[in-house]
C-alpha cells in the first residue's frame, strides 16, 4: 500500500493552489524517494515539476511504485476541505482505483475522510536537459509576484534583462512602457529580502506574463524564488520548500519573428 502523512498539511493545500490553474490533470508518481509530478499546461508552453521527498512525511510508506492519475480541480476542491492546521494523509492500494485523503485536526477530535476516483492519464514525460544558465537571479518570492502583477497592468509580456548592473523587468503595451530595475544587494549570506545575481553572460529574454503569474501562485510556499535564464531557452522558476522539496516551473520564451 501507499501511505504518506504530512504533519504540516497546509503545505499540500499550498502545492495544490500552485498547480491547479496551470495543469488540468496529472499523475502523482509515488516511489520510495517521495511523491513527484511533472506536467505541461494544455498549450505546451509551460511545465511544472515538483518533488515532495519521503523524509518530509511522517510516516511514509510505499510498497510499490504507483501513479495516481488525478484531476487537479477535483483534488483542489477536496484540499479546500482541509483546515490549515490539519494533518493530511494520502493513502491508496497497490493497484488503485481510488485515493483517500484523511484530514485530522491537531487534537484528533475531528477526522475527515475523502475518497476520490483516479483517472488513467497518458503522461508524456519530458527530459529536461542540464543547462548552463547565463544568469541565476534569486529574489524574495513576494517581490517577483509584485513585479508580475504590476507589469501585467502594462502589457502581456515581460522582457527580463540581466547584466552587471542588475536585473530589469520591462513591459510594453498600448498605454506605454513600464520598467522595474533591481540592483544586486551585497551578498554576505543569503538572507530573505536580498536580490542576488549569479551572472555568467548578459542575457535578455521575453516571456508571457500570464504564465509567470500562474507560477507566482507558489509564493506562499517559499520566501525566495530563483529565476534561471539562458539566451533562447526556457526560464526555470524555482521555489524551494523547507524540509520537503521544491516546485519548479519552466516557460518557453517568446521569440522575435
Amino acid at each position: 500500500m501507499f501511505e504518506a502523512r504530512l504533519v504540516q498539511g497546509s503545505l499540500m493545500k499550498k502545492f495544490m493552489e500552485a498547480i491547479k490553474d496551470l495543469v488540468k490533470e496529472a499523475n502523482w508518481d509515488c516511489t520510495g524517494t517521495g511523491i513527484s509530478l511533472q506536467a505541461m499546461d494544455t498549450s505546451h508552453v509551460s511545465l511544472v515539476s515538483l518533488l515532495l521527498r519521503s523524509d518530509g512525511f511522517d510516516p511514509y510508506r510505499c510498497d510499490r511504485n504507483i501513479s495516481l492519475g488525478i484531476n487537479m480541480e477535483s483534488m483542489a476542491k477536496i484540499m479546500k476541505c482541509a483546515s490549515n492546521d490539519d494533518v493530511i494523509t494520502i493513502r491508496s492500494e497497490d493497484h488503485p482505483d481510488n485515493v483517500t485523503f484523511v484530514f485530522e485536526s491537531p487534537n484528533q477530535e475531528k477526522v475527515c475522510d475523502y475518497e476520490m476516483k483516479l483517472m488513467d492519464i497518458d503522461s508524456e514525460h519530458l527530459g529536461i536537459p542540464d543547462t548552463e544558465y547565463d544568469a541565476i537571479i534569486s529574489m524574495p518570492a513576494s517581490e517577483f509576484q509584485r513585479i508580475c502583477r504590476d507589469l501585467s497592468n502594462i502589457g502581456d509580456s515581460v522582457k527580463i534583462t540581466c547584466n552587471k548592473d542588475g536585473v530589469q523587468f520591462s513591459a510594453q503595451g498600448d498605454t506605454g512602457i513600464g520598467k522595474i530595475a533591481l540592483k544586486q544587494n551585497a551578498v554576505i549570506d543569503k538572507e530573505d529580502g536580498q536580490v542576488s545575481i549569479e551572472l555568467n553572460d548578459p542575457v535578455s529574454l521575453t516571456f508571457a506574463l500570464r504564465y509567470l503569474t500562474f507560477f507566482t501562485k507558489a509564493t506562499p510556499l517559499a520566501s525566495t524564488v530563483t529565476l534561471s535564464v539562458s539566451a533562447k531557452n526556457p526560464v526555470a522558476v524555482e521555489y524551494r520548500v523547507d524540509d520537503i522539496g521544491y516546485i519548479r516551473y519552466y516557460l518557453a520564451p517568446k521569440i522575435e519573428e
Binding site: V45, A208, Y250
Partner: peptide, 14 residues
C-alpha cells in the same frame, strides 16, 4: 512582434 515558442521544441519526450 514576438511569437510564443513551444516547450516541446526545447525538452524532448523521454
Amino acid at each position: 512582434s514576438s511569437k510564443q515558442s513551444s516547450l516541446t521544441s526545447f525538452f524532448k519526450k523521454m
